[in-house]
Write a protein that binds this DNA or RNA. Structure first.
Length: 318
DNA sequence: CAACCGTGGAG
DNA sequence: TCTCCAAGGTT
């Protein structure tokens, strides 16, 4: 490739005014050695523990995972133990993590690994992404962390950081398109220190190159970054209204239902009708259809089971 | 592919 | 109080 100090050659039509890659790599790895975070899933190779951390970290802050990760592992120490467990127990243990479908998929994943992979988490991107709850990002992160492969991957932290470093961003919120981010990540990857490199990018993205108020003054990349200090105000960010009832998104009600079922004892079924008021304060007869539909959705997702006791519908965690 | 899927801390 | 956002994945 190029000698020290030359510009990066990124696979794109027009070469970007990019910082020299080697210098960037050295700077980042140096910073990582001093300031990299020490996390329970760092410096280990156990594929189950790596996979669990990655799934937990999907759209979820590190601070929250730090609390649940050890508890979950204590309850389900191995992927075999997880596969054997009742789904309801997995969902209960997932309490506080959000996106409860992840718990369902994680449980299904464990059973699939037991059934189709002899209990071993597979080590190829294709096999991994074919597992429930594992997408491109998670698969590649696992390949890098658990199997020591020199692969690049892009999460929101890495995408934001690379966007700012390699592209002049009009505002703090904007980022390069996902496909472009993958190109840049692949071109910038330090293949001889892939693990540290990727972890470092995420650490800087999460603690310095943050979404709202990037701490450019404390950033080791300030001198190399195209956007350093010169990012406009936060974008206008107009979000589309979410499907909701009384201003509250449906998924929040779903969460409330699951929470109620968690609180009820193990194997305990609750009358469907009793859930209404617990989930919607002003619950009335005209909301029964709404509640019914909500419950059907949860049942489709494998989170709850709806049965009938003495003619009245009852619900429990699946 | 746009919409859906939780939860709670931070600003 | 209210909005934003977080190691994404699935349909």
């Amino acid at each position: 490739m190029s000698a020290h100090g030359s510009a990066v050659v990124l696979p794109s039509r027009s070469p970007l005014p990019s910082p020299p890659v080697r210098l960037l790599q050295r700077t980042i790895l140096q910073w990582y050695r001093r300031h990299g975070r020490s996390l329970p899933w760092r410096g280990i190779r156990d594929p189950y523990r790596i996979l669990l951390s990655e799934v937990m970290l999907q759209q979820t802050q590190v601070s929250r995972v730090l609390v649940k990760y050890p508890l979950f592992l204590k309850r389900f120490p191995t992927i075999a133990a997880l596969a054997r467990a009742r789904r309801a127990d997995v969902v209960r243990t997932w309490q506080g993590m959000g996106y409860n479908n992840r718990a369902v998929r994680l449980h299904a994943l464990a059973q699939e690994v037991a059934a189709r992979h002899k209990g071993r988490i597979p080590g190829t991107e294709e096999a991994l992404t074919s597992l429930p709850g594992i997408g491109t990002y998670t698969a590649r992160a696992i390949l890098c962390s658990a199997f020591g492969m020199p692969v690049s991957f892009v999460d929101v932290n890495i995408r934001r950081l690379l966007s700012r470093v390699f592209q002049k961003m009009p505002d703090t919120g904007s980022m390069v398109p996902e496909p472009r981010a993958r190109e840049i990540a692949e071109a910038a990857l330090d293949r001889t220190h892939a693990y540290d490199w990727n972890q470092a990018l995420m650490d800087i993205g999460a603690t310095i190159c943050t979404a709202r108020n990037p701490l450019c003054t404390a950033c080791p990349l300030a001198r190399l970054c195209i956007s350093a200090g010169s990012m406009g105000a936060p974008a206008p960010t107009k979000k589309k209204p979410e499907r909701s009832l009384y201003g509250i998104p449906h998924r929040i009600y779903r969460g409330r239902i699951i929470e109620q079922l968690r609180l009820s004892g193990p194997r305990r079924a609750l009358p469907l009708a009793s859930l209404g008021p617990k989930v919607l304060p002003q619950f009335g007869p005209r909301h029964t259809g709404w509640l019914e539909r909500l419950m059907k959705g949860l049942e489709r997702d494998g989170l709850v089971r709806i049965t009938s006791r003495r003619g009245i519908p009852v619900v429990r965690l699946a």
